[in-house]
Design a protein around this nucleic acid. Structure first.
Lengths: 190, 190
DNA sequence: AGCTAACTGAAATGCACGTTCCAGTTGATT
DNA sequence: AATCAACTGGAACGTGCATTTCAGTTAGCT
């Protein structure tokens, strides 16, 4: 449906189907808190042999990269949508809440992305950072955000702390609300 | 010098010495960014065999627990000192800056503490949380902190975000300064 | 000094993985 | 229907790790 290299040419139909089964299984496991993200677990969930799962992507890393990228892409889309439809400050607040909810639901992601060679994921994270930077720049233009702190630093700050809040399992409404309140108030011109 | 169970009785002198060598080596490795925290690496650094290192503590987990606890204890001490000597709000701000510097210097700790059964460390983290709660409660009493958010939630919020900022490697002065500015301003009554 | 239980560390063991092999199966093409 | 390259998955393999074994060493006691 969306990934571009789904059927690179001359691939047999069963191979394509199995590739998607593996991807789907990996994606599901990313959402499970105690999920064992081993190749074997993924294969079992997909109803395939471990070898097939590995081969479909050329390695475990590539599979996880694809799975995470599949999850991240809609998030980037959403950020851009908010940028178009909403005032920057409100967009930032809304997006942060959704970002935390997302990370909280897929908290296995962070652990996996630690030392991973993941081109697709890295690119998407870059895009996410850029969207957040746009929000911050826009909000600052509206006078909603303090000007005594560097934009790039603020992007890092917001990204990292939002991530940290999502580590709370499950991210309770209380902590998310408190975070957004403290952060947004702290970001305002004093 | 400080750990209570250094020489539990009837232990041979070389065993006691080796135990401390292992602990010291593990502590050093905790501060190295790319440090391989394997038993073998610790043993090599200590100039011992791997078996000796493991046996001295009854397992790798216990060794890491002891090493991390040794690092955390002075931090708890410092928090209490600040509570006695400084006004709560200032104590909180100072302590957070030091906490971030500490975590940044020993960022291997977090990774190790993930799924670790670590009684000593857990107890110290609890004490750290209690000290921070005292700071927050005190600052609130002084009218320096908003009252519309639950104290326990604020402790979690502050702890998690401080931790997140320390993940920046190396934690630049810029981000630490921005974090403290945004956080402390956000915490103030609006 | 001599004795012995405590201690040591190189090597063996066990375990959890990801990856690769290969004999068998299956989709596609004629 | 026949052919065969693509594909499959159970089993073998390689790696990186913590832990245990055991023959040798040493601290501490007499």
């Amino acid at each position: 449906m969306s990934t571009p290299e789904e059927n690179p040419r001359g691939r047999r139909a069963d191979a394509v189907r199995n590739r998607q089964l593996a991807l789907h299984a990996a994606t599901q496991l990313l959402a499970e808190p105690g999920g064992t993200l081993t190749v074997e677990a993924i294969a079992k969930k997909a109803g395939l042999g471990a070898a097939t799962v590995v081969r479909a992507f050329g390695g475990k890393e590539a599979l996880l990269d694809a799975a995470v990228a599949g999850l991240l892409a809609p998030l980037v889309e959403r950020a851009r949508q908010l940028l178009e439809q909403t005032a920057p400050e409100q967009a930032l607040r809304t997006f942060l809440a959704e970002l935390i909810a997302f990370q909280s639901a897929h908290h296995a992601i962070s652990r996996q992305l630690d030392g991973l060679e993941a081109p697709a994921t890295t690119a998407l994270r870059q895009q996410l950072a850029e969207a957040m930077e746009e929000m911050i720049v826009g909000a600052r233009r509206d006078g909603a955000i303090r000007t005594d702190l560097d934009t790039a630093v603020l992007v890092t700050l917001v990204g990292r702390t939002a991530f940290a809040i999502a580590q709370d399992q499950p991210a309770s409404e209380g902590i998310v609300h408190a975070y957004l309140a403290v952060l947004m108030d702290g970001l305002r011109p004093q």
